[in-house]
Structure formats: structure tokens, C-alpha cells
């Protein structure tokens, strides 16, 4: 048998087709990421000379109170930011998707477009518009509340330590609610009508149909939406920066990982920036997201039941 000794030629064509994508991915994503991880192990002196210092940046960041207090504060605020999105954005997104997919709803395309619109606007515009709406000086929200009899509850929500973060989270929810809506809407449309019809024939109410037929079928999408929310929230920065600036006041109550990173890396006013410390913060942000995604993949995604439709 001669064919057994014959080696198949190296599959150059595979390499050829992979190369463009791989090159782009490696050069603009993998390399900067690895370089950031590497940079986090260095320190810089006054003259800008870098020297290797191992895990010292991380030790400072996690255990020296000057750095660790802002760090844990930012992490906790970021978690609250995420919780608000999970509790408000995704349920509303789900509800809107279910409403939109109802065959009896008229103008559903217009609603869909209108609700998705803010997602496409620049965060700077969103921040500016909402600041004006909520402004205690020029804003319309105070009069609006008076008109519906809730005037005394008005406050400068963006300026109070207790309410600023929640207000900002809700602005962000308002902006991005279109994304879970669209994703869930798309997967709702994928459910075959026969299944719904069969459940109606079997006598289930609208609620039972949703709970027992639709929800289990769109659960993987909801899982995906959650993980996208997680990644986006822990990378968030623009809205807070646009509205509260890099010092994320009052008293750092709106400081999240993104703004902490910005202050560390670029510096702020008289505080000079540190590229290496910034890289360490960025690495921790990366690790937090990595851990979150891993937990989701191993604990949730694998156990999820999928149905062949």
C-alpha cells in the first residue's frame, strides 16, 4: 500500500483564509491585551523610566488603603450599576419584546424604531439631554412632577450622593433598553406558531402560554442578554464621564471601574497619570469580566436546556 505512506499536503488554503481575520484580531485585540497585562508588572519613576516590579501594583491596588478604598468603592458602585440594569433594563426589554411580538399590536414597527433610537445616539448627547431634563434650574421634570401632584418629591437627583448613581443607571437603562428588546424580540419571532396555537387549543391562558411555552424557549437569549449587560456595564465609562466628570462625584458616589481607570491612567487635574498603574487597573477590570463570564458559562450556560424548534 503506497497511499498509507503518502502524507496529505499541508492545508495551506485554510491558513490563507484564516490569515486576514487572525492578523487583524491578533494585532488590534490580542497584542494590546497582552501588552496591557505585561505593562501592569512595571513601575515608572519621575523621569519616565520603567522598571519591572512584579505584582507590586496589584498589591498596592488591593491592599494599600489609598488605592484599595477607591477600587472597592468603584467595584461596588459598578455592581450596583449592573444590578439596576438587570432588574430594570432586561425585564422591561423582555416586556417590550413580548408586547411588540403580539400580532394584535398596530404600528409595532414604529414603536420598535422609536424605542431603539436612543441606543444609536451619542452618549454625550444623552448625558446632556438628561442633565437638562433633570436640571433643578432649567429642567422640565420639576414642573412635570408638580403637574401630577408629586412636586415635593423633586430633588437634584444627579447631585445627591444617595441618588446620583441610581439616576445615572436609569438614564443608561433608558438609552440601552432597545438592545435586549431587539434580541428577545428576534427569538420570540422564531417560536413556531404551531406551538402557540397548540397551547391555546389545549386551553392555556395567555399568561400560561408565556410562562410555559415562550419563556423556556427564549431563556438562552435572556442568558446571552444578561452576559452582554454584564460585560457592557463593567466596561462602562462614557455616561458617567459625560455627566459627572472624571472625579465622579459627589464623594465618588458615581465612580465606576471605567472612571477609576481613566483617573489612574490619564491623571486628573494635578494628579499625574500612571500608565503602569492604569494597566494594572485595566487588567483587574479584564479579570473581573473574565470571571463573570466564566461563572456564567460553567454554571448557567451548560445547564440550560435547549429545544430544537
Amino acid at each position: 500500500m503506497t497511499t498509507s505512506n503518502h502524507k496529505a499536503p499541508f492545508p495551506w488554503h485554510i491558513l490563507f483564509f484564516l490569515a486576514p481575520g487572525l492578523l487583524i484580531y491578533v494585532s488590534i485585540s490580542v497584542y494590546p491585551l497582552l501588552d496591557t497585562l505585561w505593562l501592569g508588572f512595571f513601575e515608572e519613576d519621575e523621569s519616565g523610566q520603567r522598571f519591572f516590579s512584579g505584582l507590586k501594583n496589584y498589591q498596592t491596588l488591593l491592599f494599600d488603603a489609598v488605592w484599595s478604598e477607591p477600587f472597592w468603592n468603584a467595584l461596588w458602585n459598578n455592581t450596583k450599576f449592573f444590578i439596576v440594569h438587570m432588574l430594570v433594563q432586561n425585564p422591561i426589554g423582555l416586556m417590550l419584546a413580548v408586547l411588540l411580538s403580539s400580532p394584535r399590536l398596530q404600528w409595532s414597527n414604529s414603536y420598535r424604531t422609536l424605542i431603539f433610537m436612543p441606543t444609536m445616539l451619542s452618549v454625550v448627547i444623552i448625558g446632556f439631554v438628561w442633565q437638562l431634563l433633570l436640571s433643578p434650574i432649567w429642567g422640565i421634570s420639576e414642573n412635570f412632577l408638580y403637574d401630577i401632584g408629586l412636586g415635593e418629591y423633586f430633588d437634584a437627583w444627579l447631585g445627591n450622593e444617595g441618588t446620583a448613581l441610581t439616576t445615572l443607571s436609569l438614564i443608561s437603562v433608558w438609552q440601552f433598553v432597545g438592545i435586549p428588546m431587539m434580541l428577545i424580540y428576534a427569538s420570540l419571532l422564531n417560536i413556531p406558531d404551531e406551538l402557540i396555537d397548540a397551547s391555546v387549543v389545549d386551553g392555556s391562558s395567555a399568561w400560561q402560554t408565556f410562562w410555559n411555552i415562550k419563556l423556556p424557549l427564549i431563556l438562552p437569549t435572556i442568558g446571552m442578554v444578561s452576559i452582554l449587560t454584564f460585560v457592557a456595564n463593567f466596561n462602562a465609562f462614557e455616561l458617567i464621564y459625560a455627566v459627572k466628570g472624571a472625579l465622579a462625584g459627589p464623594n465618588f458616589s458615581t465612580d465606576i471601574m471605567g472612571t477609576l481607570f481613566y483617573r489612574t491612567f490619564f491623571g486628573f487635574q494635578l494628579q499625574s497619570g500612571s500608565i503602569t498603574m492604569g494597566a494594572a487597573v485595566a487588567t483587574l477590570m479584564f479579570l473581573i469580566i473574565l470571571i463573570g463570564v466564566a461563572i456564567y458559562l460553567f454554571l448557567v450556560q451548560r445547564r440550560m436546556q435547549r429545544f430544537q424548534l
Binding site: 488605592w67 472625579l247 462625584g249 459627589p250 464623594n251 486628573f268 487635574q269 494635578l270 494628579q271 499625574s272
Partner: peptide, 17 residues
């Protein structure tokens, strides 16, 4: 304001509070 925390940033924060 050379070190961490920078006195200028601290002044902003506490004066606001």
C-alpha cells in the same frame, strides 16, 4: 498634590461635601 491621594482632588471632594 504630587502624591496619592492628590491634595487638590481631596479639596474638591471635601469642599463639595
Amino acid at each position: 498634590s504630587r502624591g496619592t491621594p492628590s491634595m487638590e482632588n481631596e479639596l474638591w471632594n471635601v469642599s463639595v461635601q
